[in-house]
Design a binder for these strands. Structure first.
Lengths: 342, 342
DNA sequence: TTGAAAGCGCTAACAA
DNA sequence: TTGTTAGCGCTTTCAA
């Protein structure tokens, strides 16, 4: 009756080898073949051998979508980054991906492009895939996407920032602390007239605010701010220093919101015959691997992105498997790396 | 009978809102709700309104896994890159991802880590997800993975290289041509004693071979080769120049297999008091965005990675939707960008 | 334009 | 240890 004689009936099979085919070849029921493949210890040695042989002969690759649908477990983790090119987040994504892969999970990557609107539709698309976990760079502001995410019940980890009210889990550090510590560091170094070169970014806002507050507290002059908008390029850093020097030729130190911008500031300073750090101290953010080997090597704020990725993988997987997670909020801190540029 | 009274029967629903719920709320059959959502023109205005309202009230997000299983269309494209951090491929991935997203497709990202073994298991995992297309950086050598891929019938595009025998589609350029052209370029610039700094990579092999062959053809001395292995860092470039200068203090030009290595060579040269390009000409590969704004700006080989990503998206989507693809093999070429470092 | 039935390929639940 | 049955949530097929 329910036979697969396919003589006349319209079949809509995709044509690929299925578990059924493997089971038939091995002379067992589909569920037995499934067990042989997924929990080899739960079947007899003989069955195991026959099934594996059938798998081998047919080149069977299990359809994970079907499996996921049946088990409500996708073994898929989605990650959202603003950008992937020359982005400080990629070290985190790489370590996240590595950790996930080792545990049999796959990564789905979405780019929000620093746009809230796009992030929303991206998150809808992501939720539709029913991933077992979602990794977010930054903190998702209240809005439709956040509500949807909350409603979806999918484990979420927000990263690279701190807030008392995360959606779910959180691994980050304090941008306010960074702004203050960098200001204190530069003041201790003897600089008075400072400037800030920053991209348009809410986290950079907070670093800047804290930086200014720390200066004000010590009655230092306010730092000159240059906002380069969305263009986080080396060129923007060069141009920014140009602007700064026009308004404040005696500037002594510049804090940049990314290493690339800092590299631009250093480049422009050297090109104008200034000495770094004697005439101008420059501080970056991110500690992109190569800045430590440049001349002058760049002082910067180091974030342990790899650690964030690893922890995120661990927490998301644990949560998706129903295990308890030690701490929902983790502060991984940061370090100020002093090199030649200051 | 088949009612959803769930009084006693064990349900294994994931608990999320389903199409059924929406349909019930809108007073239509599930299939009608499906049509309202996916092909709005195929239902009456009244039904459309009721369904959309129900979607809105429930916060329904369609389960794409179920949809994919039923329709054999996943709207998922998988991409494999060796690495994501400071990688020249990311511009391609970013443009691929953007193009895909605009067409309603999602990107799954895998890292092969320059390891053939890992690439194999990665590809198995990818095939299991039944993506509508697969994007590979580089050409997949014959082996299990290639066989599996071929058998899967999934549209595949190999990139960043050329071969007469791609698995399926191909978008790339000739590494042999690059090696030769760069050699010719440097010879024309009047350099005789050359060196090559390169990572362990089959494509770099071919560029190197062609480079040497071009020198030999003009009876130039063989270029000194330094292989930095897997470490593609700026530091490796610095160290490499150190080695070169020990063996050949009079070297005049260095061709590097990546911009980062080239940056290292430039850095080391300047640190040693050499002038670039007067004492040493340096050529990179990749044209990472920021090298054009450094001092000295870096001469390099430019690949239009964005174009590769865009074309790949177009070709994969076309193929997965059963459309014809204009050309299976596309050579996007390259350009030699002359800047200050030569 | 709408719906009933069947099934995509797999696994959970229960039974033998 | 193995199998039967009934879904997972959606879309295709066919019929009204």
């Amino acid at each position: 009756m329910n036979e697969k004689d396919s003589s006349k009936r319209t079949r809509r099979s995709s044509g690929a080898i299925t578990l059924r085919d493997v089971a038939k070849l091995a002379g067992v029921a589909p569920i037995t073949a499934s067990r042989a493949i997924n929990t080899p210890t739960s079947v007899s040695a003989d069955v195991l051998r026959r099934v594996l042989e059938a798998v081998d002969r047919t080149g069977y690759v299990p359809n994970r979508m079907a499996g996921s649908l049946a088990s409500s477990k996708s073994r898929l983790i989605a990650a959202v980054v603003p950008s992937t090119v020359m982005s400080v987040f990629m070290a985190t994504i790489e370590s996240l991906n590595n950790s996930l892969f080792d545990q049999g999970y796959q990564l789905m990557l979405g780019q929000s492009g620093y746009s809230a609107e796009r992030e929303e539709s991206l998150l809808e698309a992501i939720i539709g895939r029913r991933p077992d976990g979602i990794f977010l760079t930054g903190i998702l502001p209240p809005g439709r996407a956040r509500t949807r995410l909350l409603a979806s019940g999918i484990p979420v980890v927000e990263t690279w920032d701190l807030t008392p009210t995360p959606i779910d889990m959180l691994i980050g550090f304090s941008h306010t602390d960074i702004g203050r510590k960098v200001a204190e560091f530069l003041m201790k170094k003897g600089h008075r007239r400072m400037a800030i070169v920053r991209a348009e970014d809410e986290r950079a806002d907070r670093r800047t605010l804290a930086f200014q507050a720390a200066l004000q507290q010590q009655a230092y002059p306010k730092a000159l701010e240059v906002n380069v908008g969305a263009s986080r390029s080396l060129k923007s850093g060069r141009d920014a220093l140009g602007k700064i020097l026009t308004k404040q030729p005696k500037v002594q130190a510049v804090f940049c919101s990314s290493d690339l911008l800092a590299l631009g500031v250093v480049t422009e300073a050297l090109a104008r015959g200034m000495r770094v750090p004697q005439d101008l101290a420059v501080m970056g953010f991110g500690d992109v691997p190569f800045v430590q080997d440049m001349v002058p090597s760049l002082s910067t704020v180091r974030i342990n992105g790899e650690q964030i990725g690893e922890l995120a993988a661990k927490m998301l997987i644990a949560r998706s498997e129903g295990l308890a997670v030690d701490a929902r909020i983790m502060d991984v801190g940061f370090s100020i790396i002093e090199r030649q540029s200051t």
